[in-house]
Each structure stands twice: as C-alpha cells, then as structure tokens.
C-alpha cells in the first residue's frame, strides 16, 4: 500500500468514526436529556425500551422514520425540503475543525485527530454558525404558517444578535493563543486552560452559545407556550427529526468548542486525551440540560437587551482589558 492510499484510508476511517460517534452521541443526548430532566422533576424518565431504556433513541428513530411525511398545502415546497438539512448540516460540519485528541501515530503515519486542520478554524466555526440561521429562517418562512413565521423571525433576530457577542468573546482567546488554528489554541492551553484567564469571556461564550442553539432560557424561536413549536411547527416525521437531531448535534459541537476554547481541549492528566475531550464536552452538554431544567424563558425584549446592552459591551470591555494585560506583559 502506498503512503498516499494509506493516508486516504486512515482519513476515511477517521471520518466514518467521527460521523458515527457524533450521530450516536446526538441520539443519546436526547435520551440523556429526557432522563436528566426527569430526575430534576423527581421522575424516572424513559426506561422501558431495552436495559435502562438505552434503546429508546432507536425506537424514536424508527417512529420518526415511519411517520407520515406531511407537507402543508400552502408551503413553499423546495424551501420546505431544504430547511431541515440547512439546520443540521452546518452543525456537523463545524465538528470537522475541532481537535478531539492528541495526534496519533499509526503505521508510521502521523494522524492528527481532527478532520480538517484549517488555519482559520475559529473563523470557519463562526461562518458555519452564521449559516445555521438559514435553517431556522427558511423553515419558518416556507411553512407558510403564522406561528412558524414568527418563530423564524425571532430566530433570525436572536441568532444574528448573539453571533456578535459570541465572536467578540472569542477574540481574547485568539489574542492569547495568537492563532485562529484550533490545534494551536489547544496547544496554548497545555498547562493552564483559558477559563482561568478569561472567566468573563467564558460566561459570555456560554450564554451566547445557549442562545445560538436556541435552548432554554433562550428558546424564543420555538417557545412552545406561545408559538406551538415555533419555526418547526409544521414539520413532522424525519424532517422534524432532522431539526431535532440538528439541535442536539449543535449542543455536542458547541460543547466541544467550549472545551476547546476555554477548558483546555484534550489536555488533562492521567486519562487519555480523547477521554478528557469527551468528558469536557459532555460536561458542557450536561450543563445545558441542567440549565433547561432550572431556568425560565426570557421575554423577547429581555433577550435583545441582554444581547446588545449587556453581553456585547461586556465582551468589548473584556477585549480591552485583555489587550491591556497583554501589553503590560
């Protein structure tokens, strides 16, 4: 086997593995969320299908696949088909720039544990997360229903607002690590994770990504109390499933990003790097679920107020302070 074809094979295996793990994790995150929410509410949660209910995601999948695919008569057909994919695909793509372990050496070949080692990895993440808006907006618009439209508009405004504070909260990270490359950012945290230097940026980032993946307390686009199900009201079956699984992929990916940017990536003592990375990612995901079990939903003006008048100025001040600090050093 030539070196080139070996590289290709290894890459393909890596890709397949990442795909499999991400999708499985997303499915099980749904399950985990249901279980943890149940615990918060003193319930047990789904525990019937398989041991401890572990096969529940499979059952859900089968249910979604076999459901009738309803398309509203007045819907804009092509956009209606397109929207779920546009919600889910960017989320998966973001993962391609996250390094999830220390580089391996297999058959004498160096194998970095990241799908694509872009030198503008951080910006790639920002660009893809800004694309994710389309899923919400188009989904809401194409349904041709007032609830969906309102959800879509809300989602649009919310996502582009919080994009800003998210990007700004990452600027200190770039300043500290002096690189847009994810691997460099992780390498810069070999000894001390950035959360120690940048607690404020971490808080802003966490709030912003919560708003980015439209979760409580920022779930205005799908606020079921007001808008039925928001932008995906009219979706059913596997199209709905795509939206749904997209949201959970998003949680995993953003958890991975929080781990990469602030919690030291795959660095950690004793345990193997990949285990550390998944531990940190799942810890963030757990925190999301915990937050959903705890906080009430914000009002729309509070949401905008928080984004524009609190988080964005705070992030700017944080950048200034970091600049000062770096200049003094």
């Amino acid at each position: 086997m030539t070196a080139f074809s070996l590289d290709i094979t290894l890459f393909a295996i890596k890709l397949a593995l990442v795909f499999f793990v991400i999708l499985t994790l997303a499915a099980y995150l749904v399950f985990a969320e249901r279980r943890i929410l149940a615990w918060v509410q003193d319930r047990k949660g789904p525990n019937r299908v398989g041991p401890f209910g572990l096969l529940q995601p499979l059952a859900d999948l089968i249910k979604l696949l076999t459901k009738e695919d309803v398309i509203p008569g007045a819907a804009d057909r092509w956009l209606f088909y397109l929207a779920p994919a546009m919600a889910a695909i960017p989320a998966i793509l973001i993962f391609s720039v996250i390094p999830f372990g220390a580089p391996l050496t297999i058959f004498g070949r160096n194998l970095p544990l990241v799908v694509a080692d872009l030198n503008v990895g951080l910006l790639f993440f920002l660009s893809l997360s800004s694309i994710a808006v389309y899923g919400v907006a188009i989904g809401g618009w194409a349904s041709n229903s007032k609830y969906a439209l309102l959800g879509g508009i809300r989602g649009l405004a919310q996502l582009i607002s919080y994009e800003l504070s998210m990007g700004l909260s990452l600027v200190p990270i770039v300043m500290l690590s002096r690189s847009f490359n994810m691997a460099d950012i992780v390498a810069a945290q070999a000894t001390i994770p950035f959360i120690v230097y940048q607690p404020l940026a971490f808080i802003i980032f966490m709030l912003s990504i919560t708003a980015e993946c439209k979760r409580i307390p920022f779930d205005l686009p799908e606020a079921e109390g007001e808008l039925v199900a928001g932008f995906h009201t009219e979706y059913s079956g596997m199209r709905f499933g795509l939206f749904f699984v997209g949201e959970y992929i998003n949680i995993i990916v953003l958890g991975g990003l929080a781990a990469t940017f602030f919690l030291g990536g795959w660095h950690g003592p004793l345990l193997p790097p990949t285990v550390w990375f998944s531990f940190k990612t799942l810890a963030v995901a757990f925190f999301f679920i915990w937050m959903r079990g705890t906080l009430p939903r914000l009002r729309y003006d509070q949401l905008m107020h928080l984004g524009w008048k609190v988080l964005t100025p705070l992030a700017l001040v944080n950048i200034l302070i970091t600049g000062w600090w770096l200049a003094l050093k």
């Binding site: 872009l118 618009w141 405004a157």
Partner: peptide, 25 residues
C-alpha cells in the same frame, strides 16, 4: 482564506440574513 471566511460570515451570514429578515418582516 480570511476574505473567504468573512464572505460567509458577513455576506451570507449577516447581510443576506438581514435581507431575509426584512422580507419576512
């Protein structure tokens, strides 16, 4: 690469979204 990424972030991610927003609203 910088222009490429900003093209996506700014043009596709912000400006066109703004158009969409106005059309929807």
């Amino acid at each position: 690469p910088l222009v490429a990424v900003f093209e996506v972030i700014l043009y596709a991610g912000a400006i066109m979204v703004l158009f969409l927003f106005v059309i929807m609203m």
